[in-house]
């Protein structure tokens, strides 16, 4: 625990961006690593297929948590459960709780829209809207009722800077986002998610469709973002998980096999299956 806190402070000092000094009171970040998400005996079925079984997991704030596992293990399903995007599939049924900041996300009092406003998502393939770069980034704010041009301008610039793409696009904010490269598009998508200042950012294999250089840029970006946000990332790339994450959960056939510090998972796993997977024996 103490070690973890030290690491946090170190990272904070290393940050150049002054914006990170302003901590948001609403989410009460900084002091201690409170849990943001907690899955309690969570089960999920696609029709008859029991895709997630008795998931118990806790994610803490200002950490990058990686979820790894072979394809079909339920890692994508799980991350999409966290913002209830999984419900877009009509035959989905769930049991158990997922608690976000002490509130069950399946509770009637929390609307999915509100949840998704606080829990942003970046998808596997870059999926910008067929609109201008500016309109892409301003979209979330507009949807949530912010219309003042001055505010929007500021949000767009801040988010694009936050996603480390401001310098590349500042001269063509009105150009269609589809004209950008894949890596740039993905950073626009990250900027778009940042624009409504979420609390948690879910990333579903965010670099799987990108080239190595773009991947490096996104990974660096994630390290910066974790100062302000909690990040949960699904990845099929074990080196990536080892490079970027603080905690790692290994999913296998719908179960969580092991969840621990990334270091432990990769260097000293307790479970044989984890060891086999991280050493590349299957998957």
């Amino acid at each position: 625990m103490a070690e973890l806190k030290m690491k946090e402070e170190l990272d904070m000092n290393a940050t150049i961006n002054t914006q990170t000094e302003k901590k948001d009171p609403a989410s009460g970040i900084v002091q201690s690593s409170k849990p943001v998400f907690e899955a309690r005996d969570f089960n999920l079925w696609y029709g008859d297929n029991h895709a997630l079984q008795n998931i118990n997991l806790t994610f803490k704030e200002n950490e990058i948590s990686a979820i790894i596992g072979p394809s079909g293990c339920g890692k994508s399903t799980f991350i999409k459960s966290l913002n209830r995007m999984v419900e877009l599939v009509p035959v989905v049924r769930t049991e158990g709780d997922i608690v976000y900041r002490e509130q069950n996300i399946f509770d009637k009092s929390l609307s999915v829209e509100e949840l998704r406003t606080k829990v942003g998502m970046v998808f596997q393939k870059p999926n910008p809207f067929p609109k201008s770069i500016y309109d892409n980034v301003a979209y979330g704010a507009r949807v949530h009722g912010i219309r003042k041009k001055k505010v929007l301008d500021q949000i767009v610039e801040k988010s694009l800077r936050g996603a480390a793409i401001w310098d590349e696009v500042k001269d063509r904010l009105n150009a269609n986002a589809y004209g950008l490269s894949g890596g740039q598009q993905q950073r626009i998508c990250i900027a778009r998610a940042l624009a409504i200042e979420p609390d948690v950012i879910l990333m579903d294999e965010p670099t799987s469709a990108l080239d190595p250089i773009s991947t490096t840029k996104i990974e660096d970006l994630m390290q910066e973002l974790k100062e302000k946000y909690s990040i949960i990332v699904v990845t099929h790339n074990m080196q990536q998980a080892a490079r970027i994450s603080d905690k790692t959960a290994f999913f296998y056939q719908g179960y969580v096999v092991e969840h621990d510090d990334t270091k432990v998972i990769f260097e000293n796993p307790k479970d044989k299956r984890t060891e086999d997977y991280v050493s590349g024996r299957f998957g």
Partner: peptide, 27 residues
Amino acid sequence: VPSSVREASTGMGATKWQTVSRIILPA
């Protein structure tokens, strides 16, 4: 209109009609 774009909008907390009227219809 690809579903990925729809997901992007829904994933930001846009309501159904906001997604339909601001993303799907224009596209």
